[in-house]
Amino acid sequence: MTRSQPRVAIVTGGSGGIGRAIAERLAADGMSVVVHYAGNAERAEKTAKAVTGRGGSAVAHPADVAEPDQVRTLFEEAERRFGGVDVVANTAGIMLLAPVAEFDLADFDRMHRTNVRGTFVVSQEAARRLRPGGALINFSTSVAKLAHPTYAAYAATKAAVEAMTLILARELRGRDVTVNTVAPGPTATPLFLNGKSQETIDHLASLPPLERLGRPEDIAETVAFLAGPARWVNGQVIYTNGGIV
């Protein structure tokens, strides 16, 4: 690949929220983008059209991130359409909340399948296919260290993501591929806001010293840094939360 050719990014969960902001930001940085989605084709197509409408290159493609054959096809589509894969921003995930004593184990298994197995399957394929100079960015949560009540099951899945990410960074020694995790704090997305009272939202917005919720664009900024110039940042968990401790 010559330097005149654009880099190529796959954004899992790219149809909305943080994923869409990342897809649009990476495209603005000149990358061709594959917008992955699990179920909502219309939203994914809107994201792709938002990119192409600004002169970028994007295509939407479905996959169940927990199914290796479907993830393999996702990567093959990126290679077929754009020539290879340089960046994977792995935002796909679900969040289900309840106290440990009340948590439904079927919900736990469903969340584990997407957040842990799904991240592992995508990371596995990324490890096999990312080109030199590439970057894999997985997603955790600041709650993994903040330990808010009702978040135990969700935080447990994200702690697993952190562990596999840090180990994979070391396993890819000599490949010139970075592997990092972004751990957002409270961010104003439909996934985060769903089911929360205004009182709860206001409280969470007051926690950072900057006294606001994060925006999807804030998280996309960090991903763009890791996907592009941050070649000396590797094997790290980047807490992107406005200073919550």
Rank of each mutant, 00 (worst) to 15 (best):
P6T: 04
P6H: 08
P6D: 07
G13E: 06
G16P: 01
G19L: 09
G19S: 07
R20Y: 01
I22Y: 05
A23L: 05
E24A: 09
E24H: 11
A27K: 00
A28I: 02
G30R: 13
S32P: 00
S32G: 15
V34R: 00
A38P: 04
N40P: 08
R43M: 02
K46I: 00
K49G: 12
A50H: 07
V51D: 06
T52E: 09
G56S: 08
A58C: 13
V59Q: 08
V65M: 01
V65C: 08
P68N: 07
P68F: 11
P68K: 08
D69T: 12
V71M: 08
E76K: 07
R80M: 02
R81N: 02
R81P: 03
G84L: 02
V85F: 01
V85S: 05
D86K: 02
A89V: 02
N90P: 05
T91Y: 10
L97S: 08
V100W: 09
D104V: 05
D107Q: 13
F108D: 03
D109P: 06
D109F: 04
H112F: 15
H112Y: 15
R113S: 14
G118Y: 00
G118S: 04
V122K: 09
V122G: 04
V122N: 14
A127Y: 05
R128N: 14
R129C: 12
L136D: 03
S142I: 02
A144W: 02
A144F: 05
A144K: 04
K145Y: 03
A147G: 12
H148W: 08
A152H: 01
A156D: 01
A160M: 10
E162F: 04
A163C: 13
L168T: 15
L172G: 11
D176N: 15
D176T: 10
T178Q: 13
V182I: 15
P184N: 05
G185P: 07
P186K: 06
A188I: 00
A188T: 10
T189S: 14
F192Y: 15
S197A: 14
E199N: 12
D202Y: 03
D202H: 00
D202S: 14
P208H: 10
P209Y: 01
E211A: 15
E211D: 10
P216C: 11
P216S: 05
I219V: 15
A220L: 14
V223E: 04
V223Q: 02
A224K: 08
F225N: 09
L226V: 07
L226C: 09
A227E: 03
G228H: 04
A230S: 15
W232E: 06
W232N: 09
N234W: 01
Q236S: 14
Q236F: 00
V237F: 01
I238Y: 03
Y239W: 12
G242Y: 08
G243N: 12
V245W: 05
